[in-house]
Simulated scan of single mutants.
Amino acid sequence: MTQLQFNLNLDLLKESVMDSDIDSVIKASIVLVLNEFMEKERDDHLKARAYERTPSRHDYRNGYYDRELLLSIGKIVLRVPRTRNGDFSTTVFEQYARCDQAFVLSMLEMVVNGVSTRKVTNIVEQLCGHKVSKSFVSTLTEKLDPIVNQWANRPLNTMYYPYIFADAMYIKVREHNRVVSKAVYIATAVDETNRREILGLRVDHVESFEAWQRFFHHLQSRGLQAPKLIISDAHKGLKSAIEKEFVGSAWQRCTVHFKKNIITHMPKKDMDEVKIALKRIFEVAKVKDARKYKDEFINTFGDNPKLEKAIEILEEGFEDAIQYLNEKPMFHKHIRSTNSLERINSEVRRREKVIRIFPNTQSAFRLIGAVLMDYAEEVNKRIIPEKEEKKQKK
């Protein structure tokens, strides 16, 4: 594995932590991490794990008591371990002023950012003066599984999503002593209040009709209803799965992918005028105008034999690429392409490339799910500001 240089700026880290707005999911993660850390402290104090018989045992467990801890993000309640003799005392509370939130949040951030467990142990020791094992860090990351799983399986029947975006990206995973490529399927949406939301993800084998169908079945099992419009690229398996599983929903071919596909089949030189004319087709507000500019494009450049293939692609995919024009103009720039989803994919890729190869599928699901949860707060905002929407309605 590539060795990474991780230079910790504690002041900067603490400042970013104190200024952050952390949602309840991260707060729950903090509780899990601190509880597990105190459990490890008691094991070390007793010199024995739970139910372990050893001659070096110092004392015995005696349950837990609840204790509150006030953070800038709000109050949390921790389960503090006890011993029979009462001589065990956790260092979490007395050292929290020095370790601050940086201890827990840096660990969670490092997990999400794909930093190796070896690096995490070194940084924790630098932060708090405590040395923890790699297995301990691995155990902590695994405790994120129920949080990620709960988010990834939350109900989708509480809101109708008229516009859904779907895309897939590839990652490397170790499987049966081999490194294989796996596809990560991600779906986002715009709800009735014009807010973006990440619907879910799935890690599966190569992108195919069957795999996309399984992903859509998963979303439907959580209550997802057929949308008005599904925006994606023109992958055959994805398109077939959309037609099969969302009967009555229109399919919008991503205009960015579509234009790139057309331009790929154009000559490299002297195409500026052609590209401008092509771009104009998709910068209108009405279907009739798009068809008008498309016809003008063909009439103007149709006699050029070098553009024969490009024009063929344009005519074949044109109607699927202008479905967004049947919706309200205020939504056009947001639903004509998968750019919003591509940005999320880029964020996932930025974190994922640190690891390069995931040890297993579950670790990939855990990391990508954590990244999406972290990104969800930024995604979950109105795509049309309320004032602008009222103005456009007038």
Rank of each mutant, 00 (worst) to 15 (best):
K328A: 13
T139I: 09
V190R: 08
E389L: 14
I263N: 04
K236H: 09
H218Q: 15
I73T: 11
H218A: 14
A226F: 09
V115K: 09
H235M: 06
V132A: 02
S135L: 12
V111Y: 13
T338H: 01
K286E: 12
W151K: 04
M169V: 08
A166L: 15
T2S: 13
I123F: 02
K390R: 15
H45L: 08
A234F: 06
F331H: 13
R82D: 03
S24D: 15
N194Y: 12
L278V: 07
V31F: 01
F318H: 02
R280P: 06
M373F: 06
N62Q: 10
Q220K: 15
E312Y: 11
R118H: 08
K333F: 05
N360T: 05
I276L: 14
R202W: 10
N261P: 01
V287N: 00
K40D: 09
E39C: 05
A50V: 14
G63L: 02
Y161A: 05
I355Y: 03
T361G: 08
N35G: 04
P55G: 10
L278T: 04
P162I: 00
G248Y: 09
E68F: 11
D23C: 08
W212D: 03
N62I: 02
E243K: 15
K279S: 11
I186C: 04
T338S: 09
